[in-house]
Every structure is written in C-alpha cells, then in structure tokens.
C-alpha cells in the first residue's frame, strides 16, 4: 500500500565543518501531489534535496524513491527523478538544444526530437533553441534548467526555488506549467521563499527550520489549525487610547485611532461578542466590521519567530 512515492527516514547530515544541517528528518511525499517545503535561508532545504538526488552524502538515514533505495538501487531511483537546482548551473558555451540533449543522454534515454521540441515550446524557449546559454537572460536560464530536468520525463520533480529571479509574468506561466505537470501525474516538490507560491499551488506544506521539520500538513488544515483571523473594526470617532476595560494584547489601535484590530483563533471561543458588548459599554460606536484570514506568510513568521524566541 505504498501511496508514498518518496520516503525520507531519519536523515541526518553533518557537514565536514561539523555543522549539523539536518536533524533526523523524516518526510513522506504522496504520489502525484505538490509538496512545498518552506523554510528560511539555511534551513536545510537544498541539503535535503541534494541527499535525495545523490549530490550530498547523508550522515545517516534512508531515502526510498518510488520503492527503490536511493543508494543501493540508485539507477532505478534516479531514473524517475528530475532535479532543478537552486543555482543556475549551466555550461555557458553550449546551446540550449545541446544542453537539453546532453541532459537526456545522461539519464540514459534515447534522444527524442519530439520531446525536445515539446519541452522547448512548453518553456517558451523554442526561438532560443540555437542560442548559447551565455546569450540568455537569467529567467531564460532558469527555464533551461527546468527543461533539463523535464528531459528525463520524471515522475518526481524537484524545484529548488524555481521562481527566484523570474518576473511576475513568467512566474505565473511557471505555475501553469507546474499545474500541467501535476495533471499528468508528476509529483512535484518545491522549495520557495514566496509563501504565496506555496499557498497557491501546494497540496501539502512542510515547514523546515534549523534542519528540523516543524510541521507537515495539508495546506487547508495548516491554514485553519495555525491560522488566526483578524476582526477589523472601524470606529465612528477616533480614540486616543484603547479604554482600560477592553485592553488586551490581542487588540491593536491603528489608523490614527480609527481602526481597532482584534486577532483571534478560529474554532472555539472567539471572544468577539464579549468585545463588542464591552465596546458598547465603553460608548464606542462602531461603523464597520470586517474579518481577514491570516496568510501563510503570517503563520510562517509566527511559527519561526516563536521557535527562535523559545531558545
């Protein structure tokens, strides 16, 4: 009953300088999902991907790719993987076509003109096919990098910060590409700093910090579990201060005393009714009320902040 296409178990990584980049990381990726790995700089995202793909030696732990151990059965494991690294690792002297052709050859697969053409078209690189890589813009290079991985027709695609240095339009077309790949059944694991990316595209989200997986959750569950909502109260008349009777750390006065923002956890007792009656008792009249959902970004900042202040 292996619906997990990737199983990471107890992966530890200690670099040569004794830096422990990953601490007992375990993670299961479901077949066909889009998984977003979120984490601040230096959290260990690239290290983890490097271990799965054979670029970094793990200190301990196991990785199973599509049922194959990533070291013992490395050929089978790697032949289903496509890797798009974070950095623009490309040979500047090769043409786009040569780059993609070599990539497929290294995977041990027979050259396919049809696949080459399709990949170049999907990535809007067809008109650049005979250009040398050094003649391309940064965003185009990023797409060539993606093209290289796609030439393996991978079942699992790793995108290590795919939209870094890519303009808005292109970012959206890349999201479309990811959606297309997903519809074809490709499992996609992406790391990103753009939380909106995870929020918009991922099925599940994992948060990694200081080499430890903090949370893995369905996106919707994560949002509601950790998510708090904001009640935005517009006041008829500006207040200088919050009346002592209702002062709380959940309440913030802004907009020159015309707006009160109340943060509360969703699910369970919200304290809204109480707050509103207290406002009435304090003779503060309300002219507008709206609510706002916390974005993943806020959850993320919250979570990582919590953890760093605990220490």
């Amino acid at each position: 009953m292996s619906k997990n296409i990737l199983e990471i178990k107890d992966i530890d990584k200690v670099y040569k300088n004794d830096f422990e980049a990953l601490k007992k990381v375990s993670l299961s990726i479901h077949d066909g999902e889009i998984f977003a790995l979120l984490g601040p700089n230096g959290a260990g995202k690239t290290t983890l991907i490097g271990i799965i793909c054979g670029l970094v030696n793990a200190s301990s732990g196991t990785v199973t790719v599509d049922g194959h151990d990533h070291i013992i059965q490395y050929r089978k494991a790697r032949s289903v993987i496509g890797l798009v690294p974070q950095e623009l690792y490309l040979d500047p002297f090769l043409t786009v076509t040569q780059t993609l052709t070599i990539a497929r050859g290294l995977y041990g697969k027979q050259h396919s003109n049809a696949l080459l053409k399709k990949t170049l078209e999907d990535l809007s690189l067809w008109d650049k096919k005979d250009n040398k890589v050094q003649e391309l813009s940064g965003g185009m290079k990023r797409r060539v990098l993606i093209g290289k991985a796609l030439m393996n027709e991978p079942k699992i695609l790793f995108l290590d910060e795919p939209t870094a240095g890519v303009d808005v339009e292109l970012r959206h077309s890349m999201w479309e590409l990811v959606a297309t790949l997903k519809s074809r059944g490709t499992t996609i694991i992406l790391t990103t700093h753009y939380i909106e990316e995870a929020q918009d595209m991922a099925d599940r989200i994992g948060i990694i910090q200081d080499g430890e997986i903090k949370i893995v959750e369905e996106k919707s569950v994560l949002m509601s579990k950790l998510g708090s909502k904001k009640l935005i109260i517009g006041l008829e008349h500006a207040c200088d201060t919050i009346p002592p009777s209702i002062t709380s750390d959940k309440l913030v006065l802004s907009d020159n005393g015309r707006t009160l923002t109340y943060t509360y956890k969703t699910g369970g007792k919200t304290g809204i009714t109480e707050l509103l009656s207290k406002l009435k008792a304090a003779n503060i009249s309300v002219h507008d009320i709206s609510t706002q959902e916390t974005s993943l970004e806020e959850i993320f900042v919250d979570l990582t902040h919590d953890n760093s202040t605990q220490k």
Partner: peptide
Amino acid sequence: YEFLSAPL
C-alpha cells in the same frame, strides 16, 4: 550535478 544525479 548533471552526472552526479543521473543514473550513472
């Protein structure tokens, strides 16, 4: 990374 991550 090309040849290290390829099935070679």
